[in-house]
Design a protein around this nucleic acid. Sequence first.
DNA 1: CTAATATCAGGACAACTGATATAT
DNA 2: CATATATCAGTTTTCCTGATATTA
Lengths: 156, 156
Amino acid sequence: MIYNSSMNDRPDISHSARASALAAELRSVAGKLKRRLQEQSSVGDLTSSQIAVLLRLEKEGPATASNLARAEGMRPQSMGSVIAPLEAAGLLSGTADPNDGRQTLLSLTEACRKLIQEGRAARQDWLSRSIAEKFSARDQERLASAIELLKRLVED
Amino acid sequence: MIYNSSMNDRPDISHSARASALAAELRSVAGKLKRRLQEQSSVGDLTSSQIAVLLRLEKEGPATASNLARAEGMRPQSMGSVIAPLEAAGLLSGTADPNDGRQTLLSLTEACRKLIQEGRAARQDWLSRSIAEKFSARDQERLASAIELLKRLVED
DNA sequence: CTAATATCAGGACAACTGATATAT
DNA sequence: CATATATCAGTTTTCCTGATATTA
């Protein structure tokens, strides 16, 4: 705390009151977003977490299940059940790391990479589509900095 | 669409590519936020949805379960199970609407109102606390406009 | 032996759908 | 009778915890 509270018991009442109001709104919109993503995932066949994984692998290259779990802030066991259907669908393939037998390095299959590059995946994706449709280039910039803000919030 | 696509098949490739990248990041951070809210709710005794309901009632006055459900973008049945524990805990009380016997108007109990006004609820709330601690007044303003952006996204 | 990875099994939670009772 | 509210019951989804095998 930067504020000196020795001369005043409530130096930041409005600061925390504002925080509380913002929290309420953020909680509400986060809930809606969550439900929206979920309801859309039943339309296609990929869940939100699965799309997040695919796009991360596409952007940052092969990774292990544990790596992905850490990146997404979830447990390795949970990531396992996110990944399993993707492997079954032939979108992901795992090869054992020759240097470390414990690890299985996951990478996108050629079929999946093609799907993403053709933009088909994005067009099927409700969130990508909504952002493209509803947000101008200027708004997309604003969204980008908003996301940085949210990242700070969910960090430790 | 403002762009004229008659002279070019892909006038907004970068626009939608950017949208797709933003979607990936937003999805990721939304997932983390969701998990964070959930893990915190098991510490206290109120879920994220429940806090959202309490703060909404405090801000906007009494409402019916269906009203609240619409406001939060969920089904009335789901809202029912959000509300039930709150009534049981004595934070909410429902009185039958004299004009419309179907409706039960929910309002905060005095105990709950006091809790909120004392700021105890907010201090116990991880999200409020994080926002207050991590964000300067300037950042809170940025967050406020970010939330407006997200609201547009989850709207129909 | 300790640490990290992966996986299996069971459970909790928050939302959903469908059905029913009641009041308008 | 059609509509809106509330509630009961059952299901699904996603993530969790705990336990075990394997390799470094």
